[in-house]
Structures are given as C-alpha cells and as structure tokens.
C-alpha cells in the first residue's frame, strides 16, 4: 500500500472518531460524519504521514511526553513574563527581529519548533527560510543580535529534545 493511501485512511479514521466524540451516535450524525471525513481525507489526507515508520518508538514517545511538560513549563513562564511587561508602568520592551539557525530537517519538527517558539517567553516566529534552515524570530526583549547567541538563547531550549523525538 502506498504511503499516501495509508495516510488518507488514517486521516479518515481520526476524523470520524473526533466527529463522533463531538456529536454522539445517531444515524444522521454518522452519515454526515462519513461524508465529511471522506471529503477531508481525499483532499488533505496525504499530508499527515510522509515518512515510513521509524524505529525506537518507545524512546521517541518518552521524549515526546518529556517535551510536552517542558513546553508547558516554558509556556507558564512566558505568560508571567508578558503579564509582567504589560502591567509594568514603564513598559520595559526592547523589540527586534533576529535570526536563528536550526539543525532540524523534517517539516514536522520545524513546525513544532516554530510553534513552540511562538508560545514561549518573549519570542514570535515571523518566517522560516527553508533553504538555509533559518528562522526569523521577533523578540520582545532582545538580549543579543548575533545569530549564534540568538540560537543559543532561543532555539537551544527545545532543539535537543525535538531531535530525539523526530530525527
């Protein structure tokens, strides 16, 4: 079975499960759900799985769970940081757009990294340069302008864990 077909079937099953969890079991709901899940999986289904199954599955799952908690902690810190800046009468900001480098190669890994950067202290992903593996980040409180220092400050929080999960 080709990878695209497999991916479409997985998307179809996931969509149906979420739909039924949201609406409940009735004949009308099931019919509507099947039609919509078919449409979704036929049009966008091939995006979900793009690589063949990799080894060390347990190892990766453990790192994924670890990443989740690390991310939650960073996120709480981010919120307190922004709340502090906003509530401060002087508004202590020093914004700027800096550039960081990433070693991750997979699309999914870069997506997770950029989303995490957006949701963590003081940083917001503006754009990704796929050829050079560079990420442009808006930083509300710039501490360094060189690419190396910025990569150390922003990307190093998540990259080692993500390498374990995806690569």
């Amino acid at each position: 079975m080709s990878l695209a077909v497999k991916s479409k079937i997985v998307v179809f099953i996931l969509a149906i499960l979420v739909w039924l969890a949201l609406t409940g079991l009735g004949l009308q709901e099931i019919i509507t759900g099947v039609i919509i899940a078919l449409l979704v999986s036929l049009t966008a289904g091939h995006f979900l799985i793009t690589t063949h199954k990799q080894k060390h599955t347990l190892h990766r799952w453990l790192y994924a769970v670890f990443y989740f908690f690390k991310f939650l902690w960073e996120m709480v810190k981010a919120n307190i940081h922004v709340a502090y800046i906003v509530a401060h009468p002087m508004l202590p900001i020093k914004p700027g757009i800096v550039k960081i480098k990433t070693k991750l190669t997979k699309d999914a890994a870069i997506t997770v990294l950029t989303n995490s950067i957006t949701l963590t202290p003081g940083t917001l992903t503006v754009d990704v340069n796929e050829d050079k593996k560079e990420i442009y980040v808006h930083w509300i409180d710039v501490k360094a302008t060189g690419m190396e220092e910025c990569t150390k400050e922003i990307g190093a929080r998540f990259e080692p864990t993500l390498t374990e999960v995806f690569e």
Binding site: I93, K94, P95, G96, I97, V98, K99, V126, D127, Y136, V142, T145
Partner: peptide, 10 residues
C-alpha cells in the same frame, strides 16, 4: 516596527 526596535534581520 516600533521606534524602540533595536534590530531587524528580516
């Protein structure tokens, strides 16, 4: 960008 901005690599 705001006038406080220090750097714009983009």
């Amino acid at each position: 960008l705001a006038k406080e901005t220090v750097v714009d690599e983009y």
